[in-house]
Simulated assay, not measured.
Amino acid sequence: MHFTDKIIWITGASSGIGKALAIELANNNAFLILSSRKKQDLAQIQKACKNPDNVKIVPLDLEKYDKLEEVAKLAIAAFGRIDILVNNAGISQRSLLKDTNIAVDKRIMEINYLGNIGLAKAILPHFITNKKGHFVVTTSIVGKIGTPLRSSYAASKHALHGFYDSLRAEHYKDNIAVTLVCPGFVNTNISKNALTGDGSPQNKMDTATANGLPANYFAQLMAKAIYKEKEEVYIAGAKEKLGVYMKRWFPKVFSILIRKISVT
């Protein structure tokens, strides 16, 4: 597996999966464009990458989705083209839906869905002109199944599946690929940064997240899925994967099991 001469734009690259993926792809000779709101953190990751001169930084805030066309132009200008967009940035949730302020639902949808597809729409004309492109989207296992404490997060990830399945079908003739990557529990700060019902961060690590897949191992598997242009891949523990298949084939049994998950 190698990504020699591939120009890959990664959002949410300042930590977690994005950071680990950047280092993994750099080790496989990719040229990288790293984006997030945290420019200083990106600079540190740039230094940690193999061949830092092949890594450019373009700050990005997905909540400002009306500015994403301008950001896309800057990203394209960094190396003259983009081959792969890894739409990875997002935010999670830890709150019961009855306790979740509608402003929190709105913010999660604006970041995880509108910001994500806004960036896709900004880069799509570039892919169409080049008659080649690849969207890689970090969704979630809860983009396939809804679980307690994650109603808004699950909704935002489900929405991404619908959007990108449609994009894949519409632009097949333009040689544009879509890879939907569905993580289970990965040991990152996602649960610490997750929004609670009033919009404040949870500020603590979930036990399941702490025991999740190491981010660098996850990145290795994600890189392989990107290289093979998989349409959809579940990178998760056995229980999370089982949930996806139970939901598909035994929905009533799944419903009984999922409501037994602790919501405290």
Rank of each mutant, 00 (worst) to 15 (best):
E110Q: 15
E110D: 15
L114N: 11
L114P: 08
I117M: 07
I117C: 03
I117W: 02
G118H: 09
L119E: 03
K121G: 09
A122V: 05
I123N: 00
F127N: 02
I128D: 00
K132F: 05
T139L: 13
S140R: 04
V142D: 05
I145K: 02
G146C: 01
T147K: 11
S151I: 04
A154V: 01
A155D: 04
S156G: 07
A159N: 08
L160K: 11
L160Q: 14
H161G: 11
H161R: 14
H161E: 15
G162S: 11
F163S: 05
Y164T: 01
S166A: 15
R168Q: 13
K173G: 00
K173H: 13
D174A: 10
C182G: 03
P183M: 05
P183Q: 05
N187A: 13
S191V: 12
K192L: 15
L195Y: 05
T196F: 00
G199W: 01
S200M: 04
K204Q: 11
K204C: 05
T207K: 15
A208I: 08
T209S: 04
A210T: 08
P214Q: 08
P214R: 06
P214S: 06
N216P: 01
M222Y: 06
A223C: 04
E231Y: 06
I235G: 12
I235A: 11
A236D: 02
G237N: 07
E240S: 14
E240C: 07
